[in-house]
């Protein structure tokens, strides 16, 4: 092969490789990116059971029920509607009633949200800003609960 042809072949190979990688990336984005919802958003959104999403909101007062083993259920609310969540595992240190949390998981067939991770606000690097913003948009910001 001449110099030019060789370079062409190398470039073509590289482009094919990049193309494959790009395809994979966008396939993965479509499959694995999880959308963030607040409970009230779920009414309008089309979320299938089993689809991975992140659900954020405040832990509703008086809904935390601890099971005999490490399982726990609670409701996440944005003061408009609320969703029941079940979780098995160690809750974050800051988990308590009225606390902003983000849970990640999917809906079961019975409409219960089964979370495999629960993050609370101020978890150092993992602050659910989305929750704060979502609540602000809905006019239920937490700081002004004086009245």
């Amino acid at each position: 092969m001449t110099r030019k042809q060789k370079r062409f072949a190398v470039i073509l190979g590289g482009l094919a490789f990049l193309g494959a990688a790009t395809g994979l990336t966008f396939y993965a984005l479509g499959q694995k990116a999880s959308y963030f919802y607040m409970p009230a958003d779920l009414a309008s959104a089309d979320v299938q059971p089993g689809q991975r999403i992140r659900l954020g909101g405040l832990v509703e007062d008086g809904t935390i029920v601890r099971g005999a083993d490490a399982s726990v259920s609670f409701a996440v609310t944005d003061h408009e509607s609320s969703v029941k969540v079940s979780y098995k595992g160690v809750l974050p240190d800051l988990f308590r009633e009225g606390q902003g949390v983000i849970t990640e998981g999917s809906f079961g067939a019975d409409g219960m949200f089964i979370a495999d991770s629960v993050l609370a606000k101020h978890d150092e690097r993992y602050m659910p800003k989305e929750v704060a913003e979502g609540l602000k948009e809905k006019g239920v910001w937490v700081e002004s609960e004086g009245d």
Partner: peptide
Amino acid sequence: TILVGTLYPLVVEAFSQDKISVGAPFFNLT
């Protein structure tokens, strides 16, 4: 791929109201 996975949520948020997160499943796959 990591750059795409890290910045994609920002782009989506900037151009639509959707908030998405790209986490471990995406990176494991790519």
